[in-house]
Design a protein around this nucleic acid. Structure first.
Lengths: 133, 133
DNA sequence: GCTCTCAATGTTATGTTATTACATTATTGT
DNA sequence: ACAATAATGTAATAACATAACATTGAGAGC
C-alpha cells in the first residue's frame, strides 16, 4: 500500500517522509523515520528534518513536543492550522488526534486575557487510553 | 539574594537547582542550569536532571516541552498539579505561566469524550507577548 | 552507638535529538 | 538559455538526556 504525494506538491523526500508516517499510523522520531528510509537512499538526519519542517508548516504532519516525535495529521486532506489536541497513553503509547472547536475558542480567550497574540497552540494530554484503563 | 529551601524538604542539589531557576526568572535548559552551578561543585548533567525530576514531581518546577527547558513554578508555595498554561513569546522568549480553572474543566471534558483518563496536561501557547506585538 | 536500608550523590560513558556549514543538483520564471 | 530559488547531499558538531555503577549520607530500629 504505497502512496505517492507528488501530485499534492510534495517533493521526493517530503513524500517519502509523509508516506512513512502514514504507514506507521503513530508517532515516529526523526531518526526512526530515517531508519525506515535508509533503503530509499536517505542517509542523513537533515534530509528528514528538512522534509518534516515543510510538512509541519503545511499541516500534513504534527510535532509531538512531549515525545520529540512526529505524526501524520489524521485529517485526510489536512491543510488547517487549527487547535489540535493529542492524547498520549502512558501505558501503550497510543496517540490520538482530537479537534475541538470549543477548546480553540477558549484558548484564544485565555490568550487574549493575558494580552498575548496567539499564533499556535500545543495541547498534549497524558493519561490512559480506553483500552489500558 | 540567595534563597535556601532545605527547610522545605529539598536536598542540596534540588535546592541549588530551584534557586537557580527562581533567580533566572525564566526558562533554562538543564545544561544552562548546570553551567550556572559549576562553581557550586556540580559537574554532570545527571546531577541536574535528577534534581529536576524531583522538583517537577513536587510541582515546584515545570518542564516546557516545546523548549526542552525548565522553569520555576510561579505560584509561591506551589504544590498542585493542576492545569497550567504557558505563553511563550516567539520574539523575545518571555514565558508566562497562567492558571485557568475553566480550561482545566474543558480539558477534562475533552478527555472524557475521547474515553481518555487524563493524568497531566501540557498546554503551551506560541505567539507574541504584549510588549512585542 | 551500631548497623541496616534506602535515598541521594558522584562519575564516566553513551545514547538520542537537532542544527550548522557548505557544496551540489533540480526546478521555475523570464 | 539564463538567472533565481528551492531542494538535496554530506560531514561535522551541538544540544538534550539516560544507563550503569560506585560511593556517601541520613533515618529507623535495635
Amino acid at each position: 500500500m504505497h502512496v505517492h504525494h507528488q501530485g499534492e506538491g510534495l517533493t521526493k523526500n517530503q513524500s517519502l517522509v509523509l508516506d512513512t508516517l502514514m504507514r506507521e499510523g503513530g508517532p515516529l522520531s526523526a531518526y526512526g523515520i530515517l531508519d525506515r528510509l535508509r533503503d530509499k537512499g536517505l542517509r542523513a538526519p537533515l534530509q528528514v528534518y528538512r522534509a518534516l519542517e515543510k510538512l509541519v508548516t503545511h499541516g500534513k504532519v504534527h510535532r509531538l513536543e512531549s515525545l520529540n516525535a512526529f505524526v501524520a495529521c489524521s485529517h485526510p486532506g489536512c491543510d488547517n492550522q487549527e487547535a489540535v489536541i493529542f492524547t498520549i497513553c502512558s501505558d501503550c503509547g497510543k496517540v490520538d488526534e482530537i479537534t475541538d472547536a470549543g477548546l480553540g475558542v477558549q484558548l484564544q480567550a485565555v490568550a487574549h486575557r493575558a494580552d498575548f497574540k496567539l499564533a499556535k497552540s500545543t495541547v498534549e494530554l497524558r493519561g490512559h487510553c480506553n483500552h489500558c484503563s
